[in-house]
Design a protein around this nucleic acid. Structure first.
Lengths: 182, 182
DNA sequence: AGCGCCATGTAATGCGTTACATGATTAT
DNA sequence: ATAATCATGTAACGCATTACATGGCGCT
């Protein structure tokens, strides 16, 4: 029961539904219209994902007959709310920076509403710590290898370094934002 | 024949093999050791991918018996070299920025060796143009919606804006690098 | 003799993508 | 009437992930 892993899209749906019970079509519109969603708005992604979550008892959908149009509104179950919060509370590992950065930002975007300021700050501090370790490592790799690289390889790597530096500065900025309010 | 789509990993392999004929294990080491590869170094990803490329006649592997250890070295076929270059030459679409940024940077990293300076510059100009249009759009969305957003949503969106701004500045920097040499 | 590394693979599973399909409603 | 939009789905396909499996080689 609930033993199967929840993918990225699944958590995105849990997060959206935790804020606002919605139909599959509502979700689609969000993914099409907001620039945040790097998610596919295709029905072949969303509807099966909702059904999987329902099969895992993490969401429940009920057909609303109030409007004449068929609409199936999904809501989080208590189990779904728990799974969602556990996902948010996962520690930030160094590995996440390299291969799952999108997940981290997705998690953070839900953090404040679900866990409050304390949770958001905890997350940001962990992220800043990982970035503080990773950026010099990456910069060092860049410096020691740039001689052997073709120009576009060299530049592509520099783009990566700049991206992580931007993230580090952003995390400091975000912490400052929180800090100034408390 | 060769009608099936080549995924991201497939192109990464074509690119690496175009620079240096390698075994699956060599590829794994590259993915484990270099911070560039956001690719999985798992054998279950790499070996099947190589076999698919071989089935599509894009690479060919031959067992080297020189060393006593078993090693299967893969090389690009002419068809593989063509497919790879066509991938590199694809136009940069606005959609790529949102959902396939990784692909764009992967393509760029191979660009210079495969297409020379002219190809790299052409790509960078197209990328800069798309970014120049997209950044103000994103910034506008950010400004007009930040009032309704929870703090961490707001900050997560700002992180995205900063990332794209960094990319835009990087693309200008990269063009300047090329420009100063020609 | 035994442990760890080199090097290659297979199997089970589940996810996302693309394309297709359906019916009901609102606007022209 | 008919087109566009709302709203929900299914089917085929291929890919990545995780875990497992195998055998040769090097060191101690």
């Amino acid at each position: 029961m609930a033993r199967s892993t929840i993918p990225r899209l699944g958590y995105a749906l849990l997060g959206l539904l935790s804020q606002q019970p919605s139909s599959g079509y509502d979700i689609r519109k969000i993914f099409t219209q907001t620039p945040m969603g790097s998610f596919s708005d295709s029905p072949g992604a969303i509807y099966p994902a909702l059904r999987r979550l329902e099969a895992q008892n993490l969401v429940r959908g009920q057909v609303s007959s109030s409007g004449l149009r068929q609409r199936k509104i999904f809501r989080l179950t208590p189990a779904g709310a728990t799974a969602f919060k556990q996902w948010l509370k996962r520690p930030v590992k160094g590995d996440d920076l390299v291969r799952r950065m999108d997940d981290l930002l997705l998690r953070f975007s839900f953090m404040h509403r679900a866990l409050g300021e304390a949770g958001a700050v905890r997350f940001l501090k962990a992220l800043r710590e990982e970035l503080t370790a990773y950026v010099p490592f990456l910069r060092g790799y860049y410096n020691s290898h740039k001689a052997e690289l073709a120009p576009s390889e060299h530049l592509a790597l520099e783009s990566g370094v700049r991206q992580y530096e931007t993230l580090l500065r952003w995390s400091e900025h975000a912490l400052a934002t929180y800090g100034s309010k408390s």
